[in-house]
Design a protein around this nucleic acid. Sequence first.
DNA 1: CAAGATTGAGGAATCAATCTTT
DNA 2: AAAGATTGATTCCTCAATCTTG
Lengths: 155, 155
Amino acid sequence: MPINIDETPLLSYRVYRLFHDIYIYLEGGDHCVLREFNLTNSQYRILALLDEVEGLHLMTLSDRMFCARSTVTRLVDQMEAAQLVWREVDSTDRRAQRVRLTAAGADLRKRAQQAHESSLERRFDTLDSSEKEILYEMLKKIRDGLVTDYEARNA
Amino acid sequence: MPINIDETPLLSYRVYRLFHDIYIYLEGGDHCVLREFNLTNSQYRILALLDEVEGLHLMTLSDRMFCARSTVTRLVDQMEAAQLVWREVDSTDRRAQRVRLTAAGADLRKRAQQAHESSLERRFDTLDSSEKEILYEMLKKIRDGLVTDYEARNA
DNA sequence: CAAGATTGAGGAATCAATCTTT
DNA sequence: AAAGATTGATTCCTCAATCTTG
């Protein structure tokens, strides 16, 4: 009895597939929006995470982006070359550097952020706001479960 | 007034972030499970999609995986070298090839699939099955909305 | 010319190794 | 030795160009 896994009745698997597809479409949509600002999705994510006043350590960025340290180093290299950010040696720990927004970076961030957020509003308008609230709570529960599982595995 | 985008009150944005994080954790978890079978996440996805009897065209695989044609070509190259699949020239259209499971591929798929599905059950056990049903319906609505938006943009 | 598949070149992310500072 | 960051080598994926068949 041949089985194609996509026809599995397993609910968890069907949910999993939807998460996957939604992610792909979200990334693709982001890509279209951010291309107008000459930003890759990852570069935008850095801009979005940065604190305007204090900046952020590269370590912190890689933690929040769930990516390797070296990835952040290279992203910051690019963005420094584009004069969107600059590296400031941390005054209290000379091993560390803070990634700081330049004026141009802060300006670009504001504009890209507006475009991105309005695009999200449009893309999510299939749900009304009470549905979105319910969804938000369920997603939080799922994410927390996944985090717990992840940490249990690495212990 | 400095604003860190992660503190935005915009509900759509917070939902978006959760989708992103959930995807990252799901991929990471899959990676751990599939490593035991010497499969990358993408290779597993190919195995999972293949029809046991008819196989599938490379075109169809790239459509269902939302990835470039050349990506599938290379994945199939690897998996053919590992003797998990083989290419069969389509009898009715000699441009096309069907990717077919070998006996070893079918066996590996069955084992990997079992491990993957039970891992998913575990990772999603924060929701009971009625919650999962509700979630599934909302996710379908969102995915369909994203697809519609995507197709409107490319028209 | 269009469709299915492949190839070469380039970008993006990762791991492991390294350097500096704590 | 451990933490923050960087570099080199490698893998994975994509785009553009190409080849073959319809």
